[in-house]
Design a protein around this nucleic acid. Structure first.
Length: 348
RNA sequence: GACCCUGUCGUCUAACUGGCCAAGACACCCGACUUUCGAUCGGAAAACUGCGGGUUCGAAUCCCGCCAGGGUUGCCA
């Protein structure tokens, strides 16, 4: 069976760096095994979804170079890839559970799934076998009174219908995975192979939040990080490729990727080291590529870059001192001054 | 509270199935080179491997207890 993985973000904010890393691991696994990466937008919560967030996710993934094989804008045989457009699928799946006597409707109109209430073991590539005793939690709601569905339900249904074989997701989902397995079992389906990856914490050790520096992928582009540098650094948080160096390109990362080597402890995000990687990736850029990458930052600083040769030369002369693209203007601005002359020597 | 995951230098990590003075990277500090430099080169410092017991000739690696951090426990995802 060929590998099919998915990245399933919900469009309720910008693309989070932790989500990007999850997408990256899925991408690496698909690439390594000649599989497919599906992008599925989990927009079942009408109240919290926004078009901006949807665009941010798509643009962010594209910027990072994480192209998906199926999903929004590229299509595929398992669409639609927006959960908001899959209601009929969920209705049909719910009917199956109903026929099996595994769901019931409350007075409020909400539909609940009857847990099997048996011990359930999660076989996880990262965490090993994790056992959960028979639950005492109340049965879980799968459909709201207004007819919309809950995450746990749609997530499982879509993984089944999209033929997902492996699920790389944040460790915050580990504690609920038994619920998903219970659902797979009730539907007579085999659960995918799970791999719960450690969470990203901010420098003070708590979960990364919106306020933390580097939380939004968009901020990397704005500050002049290069996508290759960011993805390289992200891989090193929670996984150590077996290589001599830490600086590895996508092909090397793909070849080296091994899910069982992923750690199970959370990691703090260090933007300083991410910037260090960026500095080194910057130096590897060919002159014209560097010009293209830095041009927007120079223009934003009101520097006239119509003389491309001059600008390119200027960038080359200072690139070893810079770690972020946004730092270029302050280093090269004097090249663009009216009174600047190559043979000018020191100012009077 | 209950359940789940985790606990090695400031940070990310290494150490094959227990065995040389616990290794590397980022940051930091010192020196060198440079007109200058956040670049480069060289060097230093930094963890009694969360704590306490045990098993063993020998444990970061195994066992028990405790503590700490994170996560989950929703008609959020």
């Amino acid at each position: 069976m060929s590998v099919r993985v998915r990245f399933a973000p919900s469009p309720t904010g910008y693309l989070h760096v932790g989500g990007a890393r999850t997408a990256l691991f899925n991408w690496l696994y698909a690439r390594k095994n000649g599989g497919k990466l599906v992008l599925r937008v989990e927009d079942t919560d009408q109240a919290r979804n926004t078009d901006e967030a949807r665009a941010a996710i798509i643009n962010g993934l594209r910027w990072l170079g994480l192209e998906w094989d199926e999903g929004p804008e590229v299509g595929g045989d398992c669409g639609p890839y927006f959960q908001s457009e899959r209601k009929s699928n969920y209705d049909a799946a719910l009917a199956v559970l109903e026929a099996a006597g595994r769901v019931y409707t409350e007075e409020s109109g909400a539909v609940r799934f009857k847990f099997s209430r048996t011990p359930i073991t999660v076989h996880d590539l990262v965490c090993g076998d994790v056992q959960f005793a028979a639950t005492e939690e109340p049965d879980m709601t799968v459909r709201r009174p207004d007819g919309s569905y809950i995450f746990h339900f749609v997530n499982v249904i879509d993984d089944i219908e999209m033929g997902i074989t492996h699920v790389f997701r944040g460790e915050d989902h580990l504690s609920n995975t038994w619920k998903h397995i219970d659902l797979f079992n009730a539907l007579g389906k085999t659960p995918p192979t799970y791999a719960h990856i450690p969470l990203l914490l901010n420098p003070s050790g708590s979960k990364m939040s919106k306020r933390d520096e580097g939380a939004s992928i968009e901020s990397y582009r704005e500050n002049g990080f290069l996508p290759d540098a960011v993805s390289n650094y992200l891989c090193l948080l929670g996984w150590t490729p077996r290589a001599e160096t830490e600086k590895l390109d996508r092909q090397q990362l793909t070849d080296l990727f091994e899910p069982s080597e992923i750690h199970s402890s959370n990691a703090r995000f260090d933007i300083e080291k991410c910037a260090w990687f960026n500095a080194h990736y910057l130096r590897d850029l060919a002159p014209d590529v560097l010009f293209e990458a830095a041009a927007p930052f120079l223009e934003k600083a009101n520097l006239d870059i119509s003389d491309k040769a001059l600008a390119t030369a200027a960038l080359q002369s200072v690139k070893e001192k810079v770690s972020l693209l946004k730092e270029f203007p302050e280093w090269v601005h004097y090249f663009f001054r009216e009174d600047f002359r190559l043979d000018g020597g020191l100012d009077p």
